[in-house]
């Protein structure tokens, strides 16, 4: 498996750490209520197909959002998380 770090280019999967759905970007306000926080921390769409998730390129310390397919493992794009529209 090969992932493209937006800064370093395409690298072996060994250089990356995966960390879940990109919904992590949208952290609720602290008073958003238990439902919102349960949704944020625990509940998942968990799609079989297209997904957006977070990958960390360990050697350069960069977080990226990958648009990816959980069935085929195809990676359609990777974007610096700091450049993802919020």
């Amino acid at each position: 498996m090969r992932i493209t770090c937006p800064l370093c280019g395409t690298r072996d999967r060994r250089e990356f750490t995966w960390q879940g759905d990109a919904l992590a970007i949208h952290r609720p306000a602290r008073d958003a209520g238990p439902e919102a926080w349960d949704n944020y921390i625990h509940l998942r769409e968990n799609p079989a197909g297209k997904t957006r998730d977070l990958w960390y390129h360990d050697p350069c310390g960069t977080w990226a959002v990958a648009e990816r397919d959980t069935v085929t493992h195809a990676v359609h794009s990777t974007t610096l998380v700091t450049e993802v529209p919020r």
Binding site: M1, D12, R13, W18, H73
Partner: peptide, 13 residues
């Protein structure tokens, strides 16, 4: 393998 997947197959690392 540490990435979400429904492929029922993994990778070399």
């Amino acid at each position: 393998d540490f990435y979400s997947s429904y492929a029922a197959r993994g990778n070399l690392p």
